[in-house]
Amino acid sequence: MTGLSVNNLLGIKDLQVEDIQSIFETADNFKEVINRPIKKVPSLREITVANLFFENSTRTKLSFELAEKRLSADVINFASSSSSVSKGESLIDTVNNILAMKVDMVVMRHPKPGAPHFLAQHVEASIINAGDGTHEHPTQALLDAYSMRERVGDVQGKKVVIIGDILHSRVALSNIFCLQKLGAEVMVCGPATLIPKWIESLGVAVSTDLREALNWCDVANVLRIQLERQELPYFPSLREYTMQYGLSRALLEGLGKEIVIMHPGPINRGVEITSDLADSPHSIILEQVQNGVAVRMAVLYLLAGKIERNPA
């Protein structure tokens, strides 16, 4: 096993299968570390990480921050709502000002697709994409595949359906890339208005019939309806969406087989998934959150290993 082929984690699209395997194997070790009485190792004590969140986030930000702290990195946090961005500063200027304070790595969430790619070309720091608009959310896809592997074994050959708002979801796109690289079959399912027209060109199956999709799959990854990104009404009402695409325990029990339910959060209970199903043994939603820290530790560790030292 060697190091990563990339110096930044901008998207799953740029990763080799070996990179994903390295991240998973390293995450296995960190999972053991975070279950110890002392959950901290000193690997990144020479590294400073800036978490730049130009868009709201709860779990991703907490998860990254915890991962950084458990690796002993120094951490600075930035939220655009309380910053000079509102005074008209450009992205490169904001980031270069932060880097001038000797920051080695940047974890960034941004509403514009491609923002981290743009930044990677212009600044001297290792960049981790924590979600760029509707484009990619690579660490979420990695932790989803990692959690899947933990529950169902090898992802290779497994059938995974991604249900819901595919059009506005960076999680869906990163998941498609990641699962396909690992050899899984992927289907997307949702109202036709929320499935991008080009999606079949990625080699995924498309269904608008939830029951058919669930009958086909081994794992269902359920997404939230991203009302905040929807400028137009894509379906008549939330209630109608729930009737057609909401998952419930009764629906699953009618399938005659066991499937695993995943959700990247935040959950809208009673909309895309019922409360009892989200809390049932079918669901690995909280395992996903726990694995998120271990996977992010692995990504930080492997990327930090590639940063050149300045023996000053």
Partner: peptide, 19 residues
């Protein structure tokens, strides 16, 4: 591995074993 003092001082990264 995570406690070694030669992290980032070797050409290839140090990869861990199990505890």
């Amino acid at each position: 591995t995570f406690h070694r003092d030669d992290f980032r001082r070797k050409a290839s990264p140090i990869l861990p074993s199990t505890t």
